[in-house]
């Protein structure tokens, strides 16, 4: 699998939200716990809609939950060299 370019702070944010469980966050965002685990571990990049839902649970803007890993992005490094 290609490396996931989206980083996230979900684990930290869950901890700060009173050690919210993965199941609770999954229920509040309408996904399965497995999908949430995959997102937390960087194995799956969520859709924009799901990313907004997760950010809404923590009452934060989306860029405080997710960030783009530019260092790993082959497209941006290609365009820089051109």
């Amino acid at each position: 699998m290609g490396k996931c370019l989206i980083n996230n702070n979900i684990r930290k944010l869950r901890f700060m939200a009173g050690e919210m469980t993965q199941q609770e966050l999954a229920d509040r965002t309408g996904v399965t716990r497995q999908t949430l685990i995959a997102i937390e571990n960087g194995k799956y990049s969520p859709t924009l809609e799901l990313a907004f839902r997760i950010a809404r649970v923590f009452q934060l803007p989306i860029d405080e939950v997710f960030s783009f890993n530019e260092g790993e992005d082959t497209l941006s490094t290609k365009s820089k060299t051109e």
């Binding site: 309408g30 996904v31 399965t32 497995q34 999908t35 995959a38 799956y44 799901l50």
Partner: peptide
């Protein structure tokens, strides 16, 4: 057994 399917599924 999970019966729900989401975007990843």
């Amino acid at each position: 057994v999970p019966s729900k399917t989401d975007e990843m599924d």
